[in-house]
Amino acid sequence: MRNLKSTLAAMLLLLSPLALAQDLSAQLQAFFTQRLTGFSDDVTVEIRTPQNQLPQCEQPTLSVPASARLWGNLNVLAQCGSEKRYLQVNVQAVGNYVVAAQAISRGSKLQPGSVELKRGRLDQLPPRAMLDISQAQDAVSLRDVAPGQPIQLSMLRQSWRVKAGQRVQVIASGDGFYVNGEGQALNNAAVAQNARVRMPSGQVVSGKVSADGNILINL
């Protein structure tokens, strides 16, 4: 009987780390599936940290930096009380991304048929690949792009809504007041970007470009 108990105890000791690893794998799967909602509906997580270096509690608190990407090779912070461990994981995610539907010439403005969505591995895309096709609307290409090539945000700039030298309306508003006047734009700017404007008095002000081309200043 004593030998049987010893054998069972030894088996439990061996199975316990394996069970913890399997549970951690499921937790990581749920963690990344939730965060990739809207980007990917097919997520696979592989733990690359050796089993003897995994956290020893049943439900560690998992986190990644807010600015970190959510696929590819990542470090995940797993915290059990005051104990912290960094896990190396590989996250594979399948979803839609934006590619060139036809050849795009540098300097050309994108048209509705210039780009299209393609489904594939997001973790294999180049950095800052575009996932939202609306971001390409009215954008200008900064380089030549081949058909089928993934669109990176660095390849495009938004069309200028305001151009240097253009006369623009400046609208300043605050708590209980509203003032507007006309000035001359000093730089090119797209919607939601900052534009500097010289007013008739010579004063230079700065505000955000609205969709209708006005310069908005919140005081």
Score class of each variant (00 low, 15 high):
V179G: 04
R167N: 11
Q79T: 15
A66Q: 14
P112I: 08
D123N: 14
Q193M: 06
R2P: 05
N75P: 04
A9Y: 10
Q111I: 08
A129T: 14
G38L: 06
A21R: 14
R161K: 15
V99E: 00
R121A: 15
A103D: 03
G148T: 03
D138P: 01
N73K: 11
G174I: 03
I133G: 10
L156R: 06
A10M: 04
A21H: 13
E58H: 11
G107Y: 09
S114I: 06
M1I: 01
Q56I: 14
Y86K: 12
T37V: 13
E46W: 04
I151Y: 00
V91E: 00
A189N: 08
R119M: 10
D138M: 07
G148A: 08
L18N: 01
D175Q: 12
S105F: 03
A164H: 04
Q79V: 15
Q22S: 12
A129Q: 06
A164F: 04
V197T: 03
S159F: 02
I217M: 11
Q166S: 06
I215M: 01
N188I: 00
P127K: 10
V98T: 11
Q166G: 05
D132N: 14
S114H: 08
G72L: 01
D132Q: 13
L74A: 02
G213F: 09
A146F: 08
N218E: 11
A146C: 02
E182Q: 11
A164R: 10
L12N: 10
Q102C: 01
T61L: 15
R48T: 10
Q79A: 15
L15C: 03
N73H: 11
G165S: 09
E182A: 05
A10C: 05
V45P: 03
A172N: 08
L142R: 10
M130R: 06
A21N: 02
P200L: 03
A9L: 13
L131N: 04
L87H: 09
K84Q: 15
N194M: 13
T44D: 00
L70V: 00
S108N: 12
L8H: 07
F39C: 05
S159Y: 03
C80L: 02
M130A: 14
Q203M: 00
L14S: 06
L125H: 05
T33R: 15
P200K: 01
R119Q: 15
E46I: 12
Q152K: 08
P112N: 10
S67Q: 15
T44E: 12
A101K: 08
G176T: 00
V162W: 00
V209M: 01
